[in-house]
Design a protein around this nucleic acid. Structure first.
Lengths: 195, 195, 195, 195
DNA sequence: GATGAATGAGTTTTCATTCAT
DNA sequence: AATGAATGAAAACTCATTCAT
């Protein structure tokens, strides 16, 4: 019984989350009102508040979900990276996967800005950001074990993802991800940096 | 007389722009109301409307200003890049200059998101983004004329600037810009990519 | 079985009443929601409604309880007033007892104001108020049988109780109840009022 | 010019204050919404907020006004108390004046309860309450200079005012203020209290 | 040029109450 | 007896914008 009720709750929370995320990604976090969300989910404002006692809570949960999603994507990549594919091919796939999730990306951005003026949210992003860096590093260590600067490379990859994401969202021409991947992999394999 | 008035107008517009930009960078574009701005500039709301017929216009002007500022920064770097300094040193300076302008960066981000749901703004950003890429490429061609993939490098630099900016704004540990610069320069100088 | 259920019902009603009274005294009748109460009693809102079909009913019951409590306190005093203690000493005890029940007093006040805009509640308060006056008069007739103006004194005592209660609740300095008691008793014993 | 504008503001604030006070006295502070007030004053909700940025501010101002009014009433009594009227007559007038202002009284009560859970308001009431005690004492010293316990009497008067006010508001029978006044004055004049 | 008063549509939030289970 | 999901009406509050002066 307890389980059943919780199930309903969970399903509803998910419906709300899903729809809210969609709306926010389409029009931006602060351009979406709770009325909009309630309307879209076809529940009353009261019900929305039954599940989320404040807009902030809702946004936080969406951010959670969005971050988990990205983490999972990167994790999957790391797992797959055992396979026998060329490193640059694999790297290209990371970029691709993340950028393809355009909608995810957009809300990701919105939420990050939200985080700039919200401490609890910011802390979560920091945690997760560090985790992503680690995951990417793990992946690199697997696909380019002989890479000399995998840690640097991981940082560059993660950082440039944001730039490429932004380019994509703005509708600029698609960055040549295959060449970029090749470039970065070669860099890592090239003779040591003279100190 | 016409000139005189225009002068006052310009000065006042600048005061408004300057203050509004500061507020928006501190708390985000959509968290700042026109009342807040009017109060901070110490003019009445009516006066604010005299200079800016809508909030959108004001934001657009701030975006212009912010973009020009960034363009100028990159341009200065390109100009300076003739001097006799090692390429990685110079590259580090670009990163540094841009990231140091933390406050500029923050509003830059806010505005970019604003642009995602505002066509006129988005178009301006696209134009400017392309210009930045060109400028950076120019610079690279000067400091690493023998670089084989300056175009790719320019894209990676510009893209990763956004990621590093975000890291900085979130208060994460400072990225090791000197190593990153070295890494990227070496990459560009390393033996050709086998096609 | 019917009895058993009634017992549970009574116990539950009392738990609700007790907790609700505490909350309302702490933050005021209209600042407490039924959710707050349900949460504090650790029952569901539905259950709360099972016992009290409306917030009004609940408040009414709390008022009943609160009034009964005060009545009882005064009654106890009247009963005790046979004992061989000086009248002013006894009078001081009344004041003291009532004022000491600070928490009771606070909710008493809140409820009285509630009564101002609720006819059924107001009527109950009026009834009870008259009863208190009578009870106090009874007590006075016992401890100061030679008092000439016991009825007036009763009214003054009851009225000033409210003022002193308010003082106490506001955190003002404690009124010198012993001197006040002495003063009032002496007044009652002093040579007749020339008409 | 500056004056003219402030004048309008003042007049409007007064209109709002006056109407809001009336509504609150009729139905209680927490039963009145800002919509109700706006409607009654025939301005928009926005305008109401232009003058009072929060409900709390409005209530605070009404409380201020209400307290000032009571202070003034007591002060006037003190001033008048030089005249050649019997002390009990004068005392009766105080009671009368205050109780007659039924509406003032009701809101006074509501506000006092509001003060119990609002520190800034409570502080103001405490200040004012002390002032009232002083004023009443001044008056007594004038009309009953030979009174032995004017300070005690002042406290009793102030305290019982609240009780009588409550009685009046609840619609109970009018307290016999003339007899009560006589009683209290005689008490004060009667032979000294044996310690 | 400049002001501040006024607005109304919108936002987030609260809450007593109902009801199927 | 008991629950918690759902509701809708109304609350407090925000804000870009208009306008008479």
């Amino acid at each position: 019984m307890g389980r059943k009720e919780k199930k309903t709750t969970k399903i509803n929370k998910e419906r709300i989350l899903f729809t809210a995320a969609r709306l926010m990604k389409e029009r931006g976090v602060s351009n979406i009102s709770l009325s909009d969300i309630a309307k879209a989910v076809k529940i009353s404002k009261g019900t929305l508040y039954y599940y989320y006692p404040s807009k902030h809570d809702l946004v936080f949960d969406i951010a959670e979900q969005s971050m988990n999603h990205m983490t999972q994507k990167i994790f999957q990549w790391v797992e797959k990276s055992k396979e026998d594919v060329s490193p640059e091919e694999i790297l290209k796939i990371v970029f691709d996967t993340i950028l393809r999730a355009k909608s995810r990306g957009q809300i990701h951005f919105y939420l990050m800005l939200e985080a700039l003026s919200d401490d609890s949210l910011r802390e979560r992003f920091c945690q997760e950001y560090a985790k992503w860096k680690e995951l990417i590093l793990d992946g690199l260590n697997r696909i380019i074990p002989q890479g000399k600067e995998n840690s640097l490379l991981a940082q560059i990859i993660l950082a440039s993802i944001y730039g490429f994401l932004l380019q994509t969202l703005l509708g600029l021409e698609k960055p040549p991800l295959d060449q970029i991947s090749k470039f970065l992999v070669m860099a890592d394999l090239s003779p040591s940096l003279p100190e």
